[in-house]
Design a protein around this nucleic acid. Structure first.
Lengths: 222, 222, 222, 222
DNA sequence: AATGAATGAGCTTTCATTCAT
DNA sequence: GATGAATGAAAGCTCATTCAT
């Protein structure tokens, strides 16, 4: 009959480990910790401190350290996916679509936590192959599929002349954006290149690509 | 016929931690363990078991786990360095040099332990920046410098028309070989592509590159 | 009759590493182990076993082996300090004060863990100078300061005639009690001397001291 | 028939582990190492380096680390013993003998390695009781026996009036020299007191002692 | 006799996970 | 549901001792 005398946030509102706010809070703390220290060097105590929840609570929401890390990776992936898909959908011409794609790619590489996340994943790839594959399946490696579809459509419309769309997509990504990808991945960029510099690189790559695959050049094939 | 005097310096005897055979044996074991488990998950006991030497012996040859890992990385790097340099030195024409460069690059990506090594390095990049930099300074990221010089020389000879050699080098690498680099890095290659397939990709990239930078096209520059 | 609310701060609950009962339990175990084996030969596993707590728990309460040892030493010191100060404060005449001081000193030497603690400290003196100094600052070596003040006061009151109070204090301690100090320190006492024997030694020393520094002898000074 | 081609110092001259020069060389190295680091912190490798002999050789001359340490202690003890015995033998009058005894004691305490040696021994006393006892049996603690005999002889000659010679000997040592002993033992002396200061302390103690036990005072007993 | 590379038990310390409250 | 003290296996590393040369 006596009322409970301890804080009972959301009692009865969610099943065990299902409160999405708390879950997000844990993931936010975990993100900060993992990004800073890497998978192995980050301890669950660090997560506890950074997330502001107790050890036990974490284990209510996530089965293990690896499970927590997997959930974190899953969330990063979703955000990236959604953003890239929207960009391609909004673009009208092939030239505009390709350019915006390249710029969006560069943005994610340079301004988000994508690269640190990928570094950590690569470090544990052999131990957690499934987890990694799930991430990479829609990461910079494979949003190539989206681009590939886009290029195929442009080919249908006569904007491009491409036979091997997979190769062309890879070439475009590599030429216009992968330079920054590798530079960032290997920590080879002391300061973020300014937008003008990025535009210049994208432009040169795009011209080379259009020079080869554009409608005017008829003597070749992909 | 006189019995051998001992101690006999130089016959099977080395200064502490200087026996190259044993050193190699330890590195081989460490390589297997690190490649399989990553840096943190690999324990010195694992190395002990895999290398077939005792714990103490490892610490005679290497100061610490990090030191052992550093030596391992150094060894991988040396082999790669030597091979790439020789290839460029042996080539006559720009076309031949570029093609051989791309093929050699592909070989290292696909057939050696370069990529697994890099994965692990990326996983510990924040904790061991110096070690990583030393490796990456001559890794696929940066043998670009060699290629850049090569392209500049070709430009002087009139074989290529290139203004921004750094950009051109990056573009060539990205186009001809980086596709495999990323595929391997992200463990995205179920089976090694056959030599024919590799030749086809290199050929397409090289044609796109020559189409843009080759001597005949005079209306532009990179 | 209402069921107890939890978490109930302050009822059987303490902040991390702050439960004084458990802390004492660990210190008790550590004391037994250190006294028996010395600092280096005592392992944390030994402490674990003797204290009846797990390894991890010890490291919640103490940062390191050295920290644990330091806390142990601090505890011994406190008990000694408090007792000696009270004894001098309670005494009325010089003769009574000096006699009680000597007897209290003997008690600590013979009946407490003071001496074993000091032995261990001396063994690590070069490695832990600060820790040692903190202990010795109020150990038998230096409660001499208290005695010195006491003697100076007696001199003012005309009970003693002392010029060099520091020397006199040292002489008194050495004569009345230091014999047992050294005997105990070097493990030279097979059985504890009985109280009568102690009284006899203190008496002889006190008489020699008073014979020299007492008010009747006017022809000299220390 | 061929002559041995490796250095054969003393081959055939000594039984295994019996070359006193090499033995001394090892002990010298061990002394430096143990004095600097203490028993446990000193490693056999340190001894190896400091003594300039190989690990194996040490184990030819000494069974174990503890055995080596024991031999070292034994040697220190002998030197001290010999010196004190000679001093007492050379002295004529009680006053001179006692004074020289006190000064010799102070010298050993202040200028030799006696104190560091004792510190280390105290640190391992509970683990190596036999070893320690052997040392302390003739150390400052117990050269008291020599003094006791000397005092008894002086009593016979009428130079002193002493009933309890053991107590008197202890009192004399404590008064005249133990002050420095403790100061040194507890590392409480920043600079060595000069000879004048030592003479002053010895003088005061000796006067108090003679005041009490000297032939003129007839009203008491020890 | 002398060497010193090799051994492996044992050290201090960390940390993912559990469970009584 | 939430807590965080407690656990104990396992980590990196050291070092007394052995033994093939």
């Amino acid at each position: 009959m006596t009322p409970p005398c301890y804080p009972v946030a959301g009692v009865g509102r969610f099943a065990a480990g299902a409160d999405p706010v708390k879950r997000g809070q844990i993931l936010d703390g975990a993100k900060r910790v993992f990004m800073k220290l890497g998978y192995d060097a980050a301890s669950m105590n660090d997560v506890t401190r950074e997330a502001g929840v107790s050890k036990g609570t974490i284990y209510v929401y996530f089965q293990s350290k690896e499970d927590l890390f997997g959930a974190l990776v899953e969330r990063e992936k979703s955000e990236f996916d959604a953003a890239i898909q929207q960009i391609l959908a909004e673009s009208k011409t092939a030239d505009e679509g390709l350019r915006r794609y390249a710029l969006a790619y560069a943005h994610f590489i340079l301004d988000t936590e994508m690269i640190p996340t990928m570094r950590i994943l690569l470090g544990v790839l052999d131990r957690m192959p499934t987890l990694c594959q799930r991430f990479f399946a829609s990461s910079p490696t494979n949003i190539k599929a989206l681009l590939q579809d886009y290029i195929a459509a442009a080919h249908e419309k006569g904007e491009l002349e491409v036979e091997d769309t997979e190769l062309a997509a890879r070439q475009f990504i590599d030429m216009c954006a992968a330079g920054y990808f590798k530079k960032r991945l290997f920590n080879d960029i002391p300061v973020r290149p300014d937008d003008e510099e990025i535009a210049r690189v994208v432009d040169s790559g795009l011209r080379m690509f259009m020079n080869f695959y554009g409608p005017k050049n008829a003597e070749h094939s992909g």
